[in-house]
């Protein structure tokens, strides 16, 4: 009897294994809709996760603030300097803006095709992150019912975070740009002729390739170019390192992301159909 049962167990494990392998194959690319059972499970766990994520964040912030006096003081001085700089810049910018407004009014007269630069945002907050170490995936609390679609861009005030790759009823999973799976078409903010593609990697670093003729410097800011799924003109990060190797055709750049991926909380989601 025991032997028969053992064989049966082995059969069950084999069958379940095959079913799971098929499921992996189906869900590998991310889906536009998830099944109702998944929605039901997440409906129960999501509020709890939200609570714990928040409390974890506050505990972490509290613990960090105990040790961060020196750093905060330094940062304060740096920020004050930056404010002064920005104030002077603000005046210049407002002058050029007036000029730009005047020129824009010419659009109508000349019947010029205007690029619509206004996106529609949905605000959401991060509720959980992938516990494994292979992916940089997180769950957010807005889904199909809020109007989120697959491949929508996710960002926050600091810069680009990633894109949505699976949408549930009131939740969706997003994959961040430092993940191995994602790549972003980018351009240098200083000179938008210099385009390239940056990719995340398994050790959460962003690297990219760029034209060898391009004069990119350490500290240059990179923004999205709008050629990939991501909306145009979102800050990706700063160039940390430029590597030129003899045997490679293109220059390699290492980018420091603008967003602090360890402390994600509030995010914006940009609808993809808004800019099509």
């Amino acid at each position: 009897m025991g032997k028969v049962f053992k064989k049966g167990m082995r059969m069950i494990v084999t069958i379940v294994t095959i079913i799971l392998i098929i499921m992996i194959g189906i869900s590998a690319g991310g889906r536009t809709r998830v099944s109702t059972s998944e929605n039901m499970v997440s409906k129960v766990t999501l509020p709890v996760q939200k609570f714990f994520y928040r409390s974890g964040k506050s505990v972490n912030e509290f613990a960090e603030s105990l040790f961060a006096f020196k750093r905060i003081e330094k940062e304060n001085k740096k920020l004050q300097k930056q404010i002064e700089e920005l104030n002077t810049r603000c005046i210049e910018e407002s002058l050029t803006r007036d000029e730009l407004d005047e020129l824009r009014s010419l659009y109508k007269i000349l019947n010029y095709q205007k690029f619509n630069n206004e996106y529609k945002y949905i605000a959401a907050s991060v509720v959980a992150k992938n516990p494994g170490n292979w992916f940089n995936i997180f769950t957010i609390d807005a889904g199909e019912k809020e109007g989120v679609l697959k491949d929508s861009t996710v960002m926050n005030g600091q810069g680009l975070i990633g894109k949505v790759f699976e949408v549930g009823n009131h939740w969706s999973k997003a994959i961040s740009i430092i993940d191995n799976k994602s790549s972003v078409s980018s351009e240098v903010l200083r000179n938008n002729q210099y385009m390239g593609i940056v990719r995340g990697s398994i050790n959460s670093e962003i690297t990219g390739l760029i034209d060898p003729e391009a004069e990119v410097l350490v500290g240059d800011k990179l923004i999205t170019s709008g050629l990939s799924n991501y909306a145009k003109g979102i800050l990706i990060g700063e160039i940390k390192e430029v590597i030129k190797k003899e045997d490679e055709l293109l220059k390699t750049i290492v980018v420091k992301p603008a967003v602090d991926f360890k402390k994600l909380d509030k995010v914006f989601i940009i609808m993809p159909n808004e800019y099509k």
Binding site: V13, V16, T17, I19, L20, I21, M23, I24, I26, S27, A28, G30, E38, V41, S42, T45, Q49, A128, K129, N130, P131, G132, F135, I137, F138, T139, F165, K173, I175, K181
Partner: peptide, 24 residues
């Protein structure tokens, strides 16, 4: 199986991968 499936559904990227590995 249950542990892996829970993880896959809510935060994973491929559904079934953790369930498969944990179960085996």
């Amino acid at each position: 199986f249950i542990t892996g499936l829970l993880q896959d559904i809510l935060v994973g990227s491929f559904v079934g991968i953790n369930a498969l590995i944990y179960m085996l």
